[in-house]
Design a protein around this nucleic acid. Structure first.
Lengths: 156, 156
DNA sequence: GACGCTAATGCCAACAGGTCGCAACTTCTT
DNA sequence: AAGAAGTTGCGACCTGTTGGCATTAGCGTC
């Protein structure tokens, strides 16, 4: 009698694959389900530590890997800095502001025209899901431009 | 009487900015001019070491930084792995194959339509110069797709 | 051509983000 | 209950890059 909780469904899937359900895994998954934003491995570990302070960060990394293989979570590289993980729901593309770090999600199909051009003109199949497109958000764009303008002036 | 060599022009620019022309800097710049492809800091250091084995990698990193401030070189992150550096010539966009690592350069204006959409619809100013767009080249695309298909099967 | 201010260097430690080997420990099957 | 095998924590390691610091070396000046 399968329950309908997302948590249990994932654990069931895990078991079917020959995996084992442990305290650590349950806790990590719970934290992931609770915080539906994009979390770094470090942030996720911190969340897990609130309840289980002795679960190690490598366990988190390893389980995130497993969950990705299961198709349950996905990771995104936001340019510099650590990758963030999130539940795999709909396929979306991430934009990240290089100045303030803000992440914007846009529909994956926004890239379809570019995808088509790259495919036909350059025989290149774009797969940008795991990488955010960098740029500047509304608030940061003006100051970023100003900074660029003075880059050639003496640095002192 | 200024010479017209690119090397000397850069060194001149450097001097104007209060910088000093040293053996290390001349060597790094020469290697950069000689190998006009995209080099990682490590590869560049290796090239420099052919002639000057005792120039340290941090010097290379520091000078690359300086050259970037001068607008002489530019760097690109090819996804995972080290960044590559190249002379700043025309503005182009990089595509990188996540499977074989091949880098394709395309005109920056290929992204203009996307740039326009992101700007008008999401108020986001795309600035992807320092990040390659990941995907799969012609040769790698089919096998990459096959791999993706078996990701949900038991991993062994 | 020596002087000296200061930038640049080499060395090495440290850093971030992540991976890995391994012995001890669980989980799940039988 | 027992045993095979998956999982864990720990700490070492890894890559790519940055930083401190004492030393060295440019280069404008005398």
């Amino acid at each position: 009698m399968p329950t309908s909780e997302p948590l249990d469904r994932v654990l069931e899937l895990l078991r079917l694959r020959g995996g084992r359900v442990t305290t650590a895994r349950r806790a990590i998954l719970q934290a992931l389900l609770l915080h539906r934003e994009h979390l770094t491995a470090e942030q996720l570990t911190a969340e897990v530590h609130v309840v289980h302070p002795d679960i190690s960060e490598s366990t988190v990394y390893r389980f995130l890997d497993d969950l990705e293989t299961l198709g349950v979570v996905d990771h995104v590289h936001l340019g510099h800095g650590p990758a963030v993980y999130h539940l795999f729901e709909d396929r979306h593309q991430h934009l990240v502001c290089e100045s303030c770090g803000q992440v914007v999600e846009i529909p994956a199909k926004t890239l379809d025209p570019l995808r088509a051009v790259l495919s036909s003109q350059f025989r290149f199949e774009l797969e940008a899901r795991h990488f955010a497109l960098p740029g500047y958000c509304e608030g940061c764009a003006p100051s970023a431009r100003a900074t660029a303008d003075v880059r050639l002036a003496p640095s002192d």
